[in-house]
Amino acid sequence: MNFHLKIWRQRDANSPGQLEDHEAKDIPASASFLEMLDIVNEGVTMRGEEPIAHDSDCREGICGTCSLTINGVPHGNNKAGIATCQLHMRTFQDGETIYVEPFRAKAFPIVRDLIVDRSAFDRIIQAGGYVSVRTGSAPDANALPIPKQSADLAMDAAACIGCGACVAACPNSSAMLFTSAKMGQLSLLPQGQAERGRRTLAMVRQMDAEGFGNCSNVYNCSAVCPKEISASFIARMNRDYMLASVQDGLSANEVRSGE
């Protein structure tokens, strides 16, 4: 198969970027999108040019490293539930023109070409995406029965691979699906209750500070999510946030005086 590629090239965050034309020739239909880029890059390298920088690691849809917007759709113009690395060329038309752009968001500055810096996600987790438990201090794992339904729903949320496609697909570059997924996982489990309110407030605060946009309930995020995480978790976060704000407002003085 042959393709015309229009690929975003940009040396670093501060340089201007532009689309560059590349021809992908004799691509096997069973190649993945990233393998197609590998083939193109081998050619680019042999011509003495610098290959197109793009991120990938596990290439089986679990690490969340690969991050391409293909024809305007993060992770490609296929169905939800797969990452770019699982997108195969047989799903494209022979001779098709394919636009390849990075995930676009102010909070995801471009590192080079198609690679973006998603450390904002790490900082959101740092703000509260954990249960504060010291190693070795845990009670027996079966001491705390958890209804299967809650555990399963928590797992739905926990499946997030942190790829950032939700941000890239959102017209507002909002990170609410990512943030709400981690929050949802922990707020559904009894282990997460002690810090639930504070976690909710802190993670949203960090999310805002990173410069992500606001959710306007478009649901592009869920539509492209490789793990098909439901926007219901955003609803849950919205609810938790207001509850936490009110509770926090009412108890803040008591907490402070108790310190």
Binding site: K6, W8, N71, G72, V73, E101, R104, P171, N220, A223
Partner: peptide, 9 residues
């Protein structure tokens, strides 16, 4: 995006 797409909106 240079080539925006309609996703679910």
């Amino acid at each position: 995006y240079a080539r925006p797409a309609k996703i679910s909106a």
